[in-house]
């Protein structure tokens, strides 16, 4: 039986609260943000005027913007790559541990980073890496690995890699948990059948496991890309984008324009540009995912 759709106005009531919420708290603010991007509004003055595209040209000609974009790309790609590698391999390793108690204990230990609120991540890692009293620099020096205390958060070449390590630490458990859940949906029958056929482990992984969990992985990559690209607080709280902008990603660049320099108009324009970039990336991703889904259906 198909549900009778005609003249059923009551059905709108189900979705109305959600639609109202999205419109009031999403569409309207977004609209005003786009509007501000064409003005010279500042944080502290009540008057402002329309300035056309001048904010956009100012941003697109600002070398710091391009630097921030590049930093964002590095930050996202590296973080995601290692989160995926470690998260995925950890899930596989956990899955092949047969002892139930051991598996449970390891699982709990491995998801600990996920339970840290970002501010706590920032505080503990700043403390661990502190260039004067930090555990890690001091240990490295005591072990004779480095001659003097390494400065993870201020040596320009070390800052981004350090931040990526922190982000991987925080992010891999989430990947692991999701992959683990997906792995458990692969039916044992298929493995057993393959084993009878004498298939090698690697083959089984490649032809049975991977296709089965491909969609989960694909989706995870999409969602995490967006999330990491957008993440603001972890870098803001650890280095604030410094030194000398080496860790300034686009969200930090936008924050600084708006809340430090007080250029609301220009910061809005940068935000709109960020949004366009994200929409493009996601459109591409979803195209691929759709294709996969169709392949899976057929």
């Amino acid at each position: 039986m198909k549900y009778k759709v005609k003249k059923d106005y009551g059905r709108w009531l189900w979705v109305l609260p959600a639609i109202a919420l999205v419109i009031c708290l999403f569409v309207y603010p977004l609209g005003s943000q786009v509007f501000y991007s064409f003005t010279n509004k500042t944080l502290i003055k009540s008057t402002y005027g329309i300035r056309g595209l001048s904010n956009y040209t100012a941003i697109l000609t600002d070398p710091d913007f391009w630097l921030a974009l590049w930093t964002s790309v590095k930050w996202t790609v590296l973080s995601l790559l290692f989160q995926m590698l470690i998260g995925f391999s950890a899930a596989l390793a956990l899955n092949s541990i047969k002892n139930k108690v051991a598996r449970q204990v390891y699982r709990i230990l491995l998801i600990i980073p996920w339970a840290f609120p970002t501010i706590a991540i920032a505080i503990i890692w700043k403390w661990l890496l502190n260039g004067i009293y930090g555990f890690i620099p001091t240990l490295l020096t005591q072990m004779g690995i480095t001659g003097q205390l390494p400065q993870f958060l201020s040596t320009p070449d070390l800052v981004m890699p350090t931040l990526v390590v922190v982000n991987v630490w925080f992010g891999f458990p989430l990947i692991m948990v999701n992959v683990l859940a997906a792995l458990q949906t692969v039916s044992q029958d298929q493995y057993e059948a393959a084993q009878i056929d004498g298939a090698r482990k690697l083959h089984m992984f490649w032809y049975i496991t991977l296709p089965h969990i491909r969609n989960v992985i694909g989706l995870l990559v999409v969602l995490r890309t967006i999330w990491v690209f957008n993440s603001f607080d972890i870098i803001y709280m650890i280095t604030g984008g410094g030194p000398a902008n080496v860790s300034t990603t686009l969200p930090i660049y936008i924050y600084n324009l708006g809340w430090v320099n007080k250029f609301v108009g220009r910061s809005s324009a940068a935000a709109v540009i960020l949004l366009i970039i994200l929409l493009t990336i996601c459109a591409a991703y979803f195209c691929v995912l759709n294709k996969w889904e169709k392949e899976a259906d057929s």
Binding site: V22, L25, F26, Y28, P29, L30, S32, Q33, Y36, L223, I226, F229, N230, F232, P251, I254, Y255, G258, V264, S267, S268, A271, V272, L274, L275, L278, L279, C282
Partner: peptide
């Protein structure tokens, strides 16, 4: 699509609202 909106994009309008 709304998931991909960075929090930073909407913070000023939210402050106004």
């Amino acid at each position: 699509m709304t998931y991909m909106f960075p929090a930073i994009v909407l913070v000023i309008p939210y402050a106004v609202v």
